[in-house]
């Protein structure tokens, strides 16, 4: 009988230190996920954790992991050549069809940049897929800046604004991502746009409110949720909100659904 929670041992190909707390692990894996999906990563005798895919290539996936828990701190001890246990991908991912030919806005905060990185790199490598790409990415401070090479690329090809919450640095704006939203040329876009948002819950809440205040249509906004998950296949109940299972129906939700999901 097929066991949907059976993990598979997979070889770590490389480890890149992005910041003191965030490393990117490139791991051998055959299945190509959709942008924004996640996998369950585990270490036997320690546990499992849901981690979103931050980049993908032929035969490998990358996971940018923040060292905040028991499982992640054990993963941080792993080196190239070591083994991680993987299962997935799970969840629905970003609505890539809805982005085709549109003016795409991506607003991400902190580790939340990871689940949009593969999508942004796809848009970078596929000019013309979107009418325009507008990135607003925020980090806490200089030490927490992720994906410096990617940020450079995005700056070259996209309308990109990068923020640091409370530090001055060249190429970055001091302040929250919410302050940039009103500068987006919404009037020029008419109905022809799509917004995706991911970050800490507080950031997503205020970004949502600011988008509506600036006249964005709630039907054209998508958000990615983070919840505790144990099984990732709709059985354990930890991620449920109302009749929705974040692991199955999300993690990406249209704002029209997200705004009514009261924990």
């Amino acid at each position: 009988m097929f066991n949907p929670i059976q993990p598979k041992p997979c070889k770590i190909l490389s480890v890149k230190h992005e910041t003191e707390l965030e490393y990117t692990f490139r791991v051998e894996y055959d299945i190509k996920p959709d942008h924004g999906q996640f996998l369950q990563l585990s270490i036997p005798m320690i546990g499992e954790a849901p981690i979103s895919v931050s980049e993908q290539g032929d035969g490998w996936l990358e996971f940018t992991i923040r060292n905040v828990g028991k499982v992640t701190s054990c993963i941080f001890e792993k080196k190239a050549g070591d083994v991680l246990f993987l299962r997935g991908p799970y969840g629905n991912g970003w609505p890539t069809e809805e982005l085709k030919g549109k003016n795409v806005v991506v607003i991400a905060g902190g580790t939340g940049v990871s689940p949009v990185r593969s999508l942004l790199n796809y848009l970078y490598k596929t000019p013309g897929y979107a009418k325009s790409v507008n990135v607003i990415a925020g980090f806490k401070n200089e030490q927490s800046i992720l994906f410096k090479n990617d940020l450079e690329n995005w700056k070259k090809s996209f309308n990109a604004t990068f923020c640091l919450d409370n530090e001055e640095k060249e190429g970055f704006r001091k302040g929250m991502v919410t302050t940039v939203i009103k500068e987006l040329p919404l009037k020029d876009w008419g109905e022809d746009y799509a917004v995706i948002v991911v970050g800490p819950p507080v950031m997503m809440k205020f970004v949502g409110l600011e988008l509506l205040k600036c006249g964005f249509d709630e039907k054209k906004i998508w958000m990615s949720f983070e919840r505790k998950m144990s099984c990732a296949v709709g059985k354990c109940g930890h991620c449920r909100i109302d009749e929705v299972y974040v692991c199955l129906d999300g993690p990406v939700f249209p704002y029209t659904t997200a705004k009514n999901l009261v924990d």
């Binding site: 066991n3 709709g234 299972y245 692991c247």
Partner: peptide, 16 residues
């Protein structure tokens, strides 16, 4: 409905 259906996944441990 949850163990052997939700999301199209059948939990093997329940089903067996």
């Amino acid at each position: 409905k949850i163990y052997a259906g939700n999301g199209g996944f059948i939990d093997m441990y329940y089903e067996r």
